[in-house]
Amino acid sequence: MNPVNYLYLAALLFTIGATGVLIRRNAIVVFMCIELMLNACNLAFVAFSRMHGNLDGQIIAFFTMVVAAAEVVVGLAIIVSLFRSRHSASVDDASLMKL
């Protein structure tokens, strides 16, 4: 098997995640889909690391994880406060950005 298949898998997962972001209304699920996209990227980075024979790709994946962790913390805090004020976790309910 050619290790390039890992990249195809990453692309597939990324696309599924992105489509999920667009389709789902529940903010938590949207957030999970974003995590899925980040993980797909990480898989690609790890695969690249193996291809190039150096560890830089893994470092980037590591940083991605850290950033994802920070993002999850802030994002979930936002969802919680949103739920508190609106009693709903639907992203469509927060549609004040229109004329």
């Binding site: 990480n42 898989l43 790890v46 690391s49 193996r50 893994q58 994946a61």
Partner: peptide, 16 residues
């Protein structure tokens, strides 16, 4: 995905 990391030689990342 963690299993795939391990398979790709990223042992630390797999555990993390």
């Amino acid at each position: 995905l963690a299993v795939f990391y391990l398979a790709n030689g990223a042992y630390f990342l797999g555990i993390v």
